[in-house]
Design a binder for these strands. Structure first.
Lengths: 216, 216, 216, 216
DNA sequence: CATGAATGAGCTTTCATTCAT
DNA sequence: CATGAATGAAAGCTCATTCAT
């Protein structure tokens, strides 16, 4: 214990790369806690344990800073989905894995998610960055569904596929939003519920059907 | 002289209730256009064609004003859904009508929708009002599904029903959000797409099935 | 005495026009004392006995405020020259009156002069306003000289006239600059000295000649 | 390897005096371009190709640095006047040479001139340094005139001489100021015009007289 | 000798809110 | 009832200046 205190680094004069990550961490926390406008650069600097001018020197204006947060968290989110979806699995398995990855990320990075969606969505300057991310996610999902259609040799209209992907992502976001506010909730549960709804549809659900993970 | 004053058709000295509605109209427009923080009380007073102290006298602080906007628009939204859903219709017909009512409202009150969701969702002080509204909508949908289950004499778990309702509402909100930004889009189209997805589920869609309104 | 105190207005809630003049007075004093950049809006508001937001509400940004000062003082200066120069007097009398008017203004509005020349000249955004004023003064002087040339039936090149006018104005400005820093100096003395130099030239002065006002 | 280091033609490890001149060069350029306050120490360091702490180590605070600029440029200006004025030439020739020297300097060192006059004149802390320089120049001119008076055996009052010198210097400064902004203008032209005005006076000019350099 | 890292202090500007008329 | 006048408080941003390496 004492040793750890004694060897504790001074936390001063850190190299730029390190400080930048510290600042982004702090900014994500504060933006998530307060919202973009209510968050003050002073509070962010405080949270990062550094003075305000450093934030401006390294990350630029408040807008720049926020955009950097959005991009970092967005990239992480996308990776945590793409990395778990095997390309050659059956469609339902892919969807299931994607949802689990998604909700796992949200469960683990509640602050990041709040920054991404609760804040960025509303603010015009950042909506574009976010729209780009969203489009990429939708594309991933639509691709997933598309391959399934080919496998089933049916011919769903492409527009319907995209719309379905949109609805799916929307539903997921909405549930994620709820998840971000309920720390005790289990991400996997959310994933399973959404999986059931989106895979079977309301009609099947009403008839008592239930989808089961093939691996279980 | 006096006659001209008496017959003057200006908007002065209106009864309080009318003035309040004018102010709310103006406030909804400005909040929608600028967002909560960027909207200034000056601009709202201007838009309402009235002086600032009047706004404070009638509707209280900026927070109060915003909350009044949210409540008015929320009530309207709820009414436009509930009023079209016949209690004794089949479940799919009820869902279809509900969705159409929902998207019709969003299409017709894009400003109101933007205030409700893009602003209120992000701001802690108002999130509660919004959550209450949301809960009521979810309850409506869950009730709808519940009656369908009873009709089908199956036994879906209640939690699954609620989750489904959540997912459904979430998907609807997300698509509505997109709709609010695309003035040229047709609300009924959005309703139909979401109906297909949520009623049939991804699996059926992938197999080429399509739901059709029974009335058409 | 007591009456004056008793009847002293509260200095609150003054009409806009009055407050604006108070603010301009204060701004001219502070800009003159500190220079444009060293002057803070806080100090200007203090000097005007009013809060900062009022300054912004009435006169706009710091730049706007400064420009308003320059324009007001510039207009006053020009008037105090033009108003005393009779159009049909002999050239030397006109010049003499113009110089007296000019130095009288500078003597009486030392702050205004400092604002006009010491500050505005250096700052690009305001240099234009000032250049316009200067051009008008030069034009007045050049016109004066031009009429004298016609009266003398000689043929001085126009460019030489303009250059002379420029030199004259420059010399006057420079002496005015010195005058603004020496409160005890007599403006009329300065006018007489410059009159001698510019009317007779160094050569005549060296030979002991002296110009005398015709009216004396 | 070592050889390459040894023969490296970079600018590192220069003797202090050289570095200081480089810094002053850079500072003069930046102050001239931006003005005193708008010039940042960062930009000056950048322009000098050196890091900020070096500037502080060698030349002290921003004020110190500016004062050093003013002094260097002022000295150069004075030298370029004094060096061309022969002590035993006729008065008009001396004046002519002095003016040519002055305008030649301004034409060749427009940045330096801008620093000296446009900046230093306005800033109280530096006005003193500049006043001292100005006094020395006025003294040179007054001395010139004084010797001419003695030669002419006339008896001009000394105060008039000084005032004339002042007016002359003022006119010259003003024209120089204009010259600094017009890179295409010919310094000798400016010198000739001012020579005519100041030597002959407005009256003679109006009668069509013209002064000619005796050497031409 | 030379520099990247760091900051205290200050400035302009805006805005919700309230008097006094 | 209605409004122009007025302000306290705070936010974003910059800069001269100094350590610690």
């Amino acid at each position: 214990m004492l040793a750890s205190v004694a060897s504790r680094p001074t936390f001063k004069r850190l190299p730029r790369a390190v400080r930048e990550q510290q600042m982004l961490d702090a900014a994500v926390r504060v933006f998530s806690r307060r919202g973009f406008h209510e968050a003050s650069m002073d509070e962010i600097a405080d949270e990062a344990g550094i003075s305000k001018p450093m934030v401006y020197a390294y990350l630029g204006s408040k807008d720049d800073l926020f955009r950097a947060c959005v991009n970092r968290e967005g990239t992480r989110l996308l990776e945590s989905i793409v990395s778990v979806v095997g390309d050659d699995l059956p469609a339902d398995e892919q969807l299931w894995r994607g949802l689990r990855g998604f909700f796992a990320f949200v469960g683990a990075h509640r602050d990041g998610w709040a920054v991404l969606y609760r804040q960025a969505k509303s603010r015009q300057p950042f909506a574009d960055d976010l729209a780009a991310l969203r489009t990429r996610i939708v594309a991933v999902v639509a691709g997933m569904l598309g391959r399934a259609v080919q496998a089933a040799r049916t011919s769903a209209h492409e527009q319907d596929l995209t719309a379905s992907a949109y609805a799916l992502v929307g539903a997921a976001e909405s549930i994620a939003d709820w998840l971000a506010d309920h720390p005790e909730a289990d991400p996997d549960h959310s994933a399973a519920r959404l999986m059931n709804f989106s895979w079977l549809g309301a009609r099947q659900l009403l008839q008592g059907e239930l989808w089961q993970p093939s691996s279980a």
